[in-house]
Design a binder for these strands. Structure first.
Lengths: 206, 206
DNA sequence: TCGAATATGGGACCTTAGTCTTATGCGGAA
DNA sequence: TTCCGCATAAGACTAAGGTCCCATATTCGA
């Protein structure tokens, strides 16, 4: 993975820790942005490129877990690596259940952290790629008219044109017209591709 | 979910804890089986119906994490709820990263445990259902001859018979024959269904 | 009120896919 | 050697899908 373009967002209220983390992370060629509090990160626009968040659990103001929840609420799923000096098991379990990539306790060795960051960034890259593809298909699906969506639904269920016509109370000819437009708008050349595209639309709500 | 038929496997080296857990779990109508050690559980045949494992981390012999790894190695993915008196964060994180449903520390309240068990059983039911369907499709796929598999691959890519014929160096007529047999053996009536079936085969290796 | 988007559908054709029957060649197992 | 599974394929259709061009009706917003 070309982690070179990735950015690691470091959130810790201790300036010296931020500095040390930034130095370590930069030493492997990653970009860093540091924040002294959860709020500072939230005020930032959501990141563009791939990246991850390295987050201290205990901080004044919003703590790490609260920030994680807030990000989830805003539908920002940048992977999070927690670090902490004084954590407990409940905290770590809660963080992991909420999807954290790792939860490290200080002092941790550099390799551990860098390994977790690498995993997190790869996860983000993978997710963002899937996301991009998915939203493109979603966009196309939204250009369909209601009737075209109905036809699409029945086509991907394997119905024949005549069956679709019967179910919708229309002429087979009309179904063909809708169907052709669906293929055009979804930008697919075959039923097989159409089925795959439709599966992805279905997989994340309409 | 009809958790009524589900079985909870309790593994703890302390007989009094086993007894208490069994009583609690049975009080909500679930079956229990208790084991004094990881090895005892492993000696048992893998469970048939839906269920989950409630597992103490610290035990003589194989500990909880080792048992989890061993089960994973044997491809048994019954969900695990860990409980512990003396755990640390590393342990909990490792358990969660390996897919544990929850990691509770004693003393926990009954609702917490029962909630985790409920989640775990639902997960198992969901997984087992998907598993069953998947292995059926897999079974059908294995009845295909090598040539039929090639044709299947190209059909679900959206290729036309004539294209498939060209790619395989065969007559279009022959492709039609293979294709018809593929539809029969995979027990589908349409290309749409075939694509979906093939996706599932592809999703878990050949 | 007028044009754009939507849904409808006929007619004419061509291309693909599917079915049924029949048949050949090959290689391995009994 | 004989039979079976596999791959091959032609002939003769039937049916299903796709593509032109064309035309009508409704609705809705500018």
């Amino acid at each position: 993975m070309k982690n070179g373009a990735a950015t690691v967002f470091v959130v810790d209220d201790d300036a010296s820790v931020r500095k040390a983390l930034a130095r370590l992370i930069q030493s492997v060629g990653l970009q860093t942005k540091t924040f002294a509090s959860a709020q500072e990160l939230l005020d930032q626009a959501p990141p563009e490129g791939p990246g991850c968040i390295v987050l201290d659990v205990r901080m004044p103001g919003l703590n790490g877990l609260e920030l994680q929840a807030e990000l989830t609420g805003r539908n920002i799923q940048t992977p999070i690596v927690f670090i902490t000096g004084h954590g407990d098991i409940q905290m770590s379990v809660r963080a992991m259940k909420s999807g954290a990539v790792d939860f490290l306790i200080k002092p941790f060795n550099d390799k551990e952290l860098l390994g977790a960051i690498k995993t997190a960034i790869e996860k983000d890259e993978y997710f963002k790629a899937a996301q991009t593809e998915h939203s493109e298909i979603q966009r196309r699906h939204q250009t369909l008219t209601p009737r075209e969506r109905e036809v699409l639904g029945l086509v991907v269920k394997g119905r024949m044109n005549k069956e679709i016509a019967a179910e919708l109370g229309a002429a087979e000819k009309t179904v063909k017209v809708h169907r052709a437009r669906v293929m055009q708008k979804m930008q697919v050349q075959s039923v097989a591709e159409l089925v795959r595209a439709a599966e992805r639309v279905a997989s994340l709500g309409s």
